[in-house]
Design a protein around this nucleic acid. Sequence first.
DNA 1: TCGCGTAATTGACAATTTGTCAAATTCTAA
DNA 2: TTAGAATTTGACAAATTGTCAATTACGCGA
Lengths: 221, 221
Amino acid sequence: MLIRMATKSKTVLEESTLARQHKRKAESRQRLLAAARQLFVERGYHDTRPQDISRLAGVGHGTFYLYFSDKKACFQAFVALTQAEVDALIRVRLAACKTNEERVYGALETSMDYVQANPGVLKAAWAGHQLMAREDPQGAPTPSISDEWAAGWAKVILNGQKAGMIWQDYDPEIIGYAVLVVTSVVSYGALRKGAEREHFLTNLTKFILRALRAPKASTPS
Amino acid sequence: MLIRMATKSKTVLEESTLARQHKRKAESRQRLLAAARQLFVERGYHDTRPQDISRLAGVGHGTFYLYFSDKKACFQAFVALTQAEVDALIRVRLAACKTNEERVYGALETSMDYVQANPGVLKAAWAGHQLMAREDPQGAPTPSISDEWAAGWAKVILNGQKAGMIWQDYDPEIIGYAVLVVTSVVSYGALRKGAEREHFLTNLTKFILRALRAPKASTPS
DNA sequence: TCGCGTAATTGACAATTTGTCAAATTCTAA
DNA sequence: TTAGAATTTGACAAATTGTCAATTACGCGA
């Protein structure tokens, strides 16, 4: 599955990558990121050193600083990459969805697939994103991809409200975040395999849908 | 629920504290934790050095290592302290609650109070808890206080199910986590002051209650 | 109040890690 | 094949981490 989405993220990466690298030798960056992912997940942020990442990636340790200013930047790149991967998968999955039920279940199932295929990765990325989130002194706090996800749900909610399917008294922006975080529950803890998986997905889907769905016909504004 | 276990963790804290300090001189630890909190929140984990913490705390930097084996341990202590503070507040607040609506709103409002009184702290602690969470190879993954909170909600849900107030088809454990994470939304981003605050709280309260509440009378098991 | 033994603290020091950069290597295109 | 640019490298300097013998502060009995 990492293979599958490689297509997508490859595209994204190529732009920034091409700008940076001469021809293509900066596959070093990819090797570094792959190593970083493995170590951050296995040992955690604290116990992972830039040297370790370089060694595992099989490059000289000076190379690390060619691509990342420090460990924090490397971690943020790891988070961004992971989020981009999941984002690509979810986008594909949701493209075909007609109903909100399909969308909610689809997003959950896609995340669950990713979590099972890449144990620990999404959890680390999700938690880390918040921990590392930088605050501009200004009012432009660099919207992360999670913010975009929340905004995406906000849009879904707004549409639902217009159609009279979702409670009119919700603030789409706030509830967008609520839906997002419930979605993130799939990345928690030791996840459940096999039959438990379905159980997990249906529970969270029901939770979200029941929270959203307006009863009977609530008057569209 | 939260009440019961608070007793537990309080006891645990006192024991370890008393055992560690001679009489009371180890207020050094408190100073270190206060300094750590400030720096972790202001600068983030990466850019905070044990030295900085010691200096701000006004103790020799060797003292740091008397109380924490390393920065990671210090951070975890900070997270534990923050969670314990919030836990205590919520415990008090929920003690008087009769209905689930009161409980949900109470938990949200209490968290919001804390977030506003201590900007950034709960956000850092929440995110960090997940990032640093240690995984025992065994099946005993050292339940964090967040797990206990989720378990507390699970109990509320189970009771609600018995009373026919909450959907019977929910798995209390899973939905307990869902409620918890929605609760955590109050610690997100630049928080809203004044009128926005109420807006925020009512939105999240409605979201959770609507997700939980069974329609009409669903048959209690 | 004066010691004295224990608890607590300290900062110099050694070990480790981080970040830099001039030299070396690899690649491309002519 | 070669010039020159792109990329990599690891030795080095700077900075940080963690240790510990020496020092200071405390509690308590005489």
